[in-house]
């Protein structure tokens, strides 16, 4: 089971990122849990400065933009 966390203070791009993660994991039939982290203190503790950022199983794997489809599929297939 893959646990994704989308870090971001609620901007449109962060919502889009979370939505894409959910949709693509469903399409590929990979079990994944997507949550959003909007607490700024928690985001800071991940050491992330540009949002949206994506955390996969407590590892920051992406930051600063909406990840594209290829990257997301890669995470899911790992």
């Amino acid at each position: 089971m893959k646990q994704f966390k989308v870090l971001g203070t609620g901007c449109a791009k962060c919502l889009k990122t979370a939505e894409m993660l959910e949709r693509i994991s469903k399409e590929l039939g990979v079990e994944a849990e997507v949550s959003k982290e909007t607490n700024i203190e928690a985001i800071m503790n991940y050491g992330v400065m540009s949002t949206p950022a994506v955390v996969l199983n407590e590892q920051v794997v992406h930051s600063g933009s909406i990840p594209n489809r290829d990257i997301i599929e890669n995470w899911l297939r790992q």
Binding site: I40, M44, V48, T51
Partner: peptide, 16 residues
Amino acid sequence: PFCSCSSIPVFLGFTS
């Protein structure tokens, strides 16, 4: 370039 929605994380990143 950066969008204003990033200003808080950037500020904290600098500060910490």
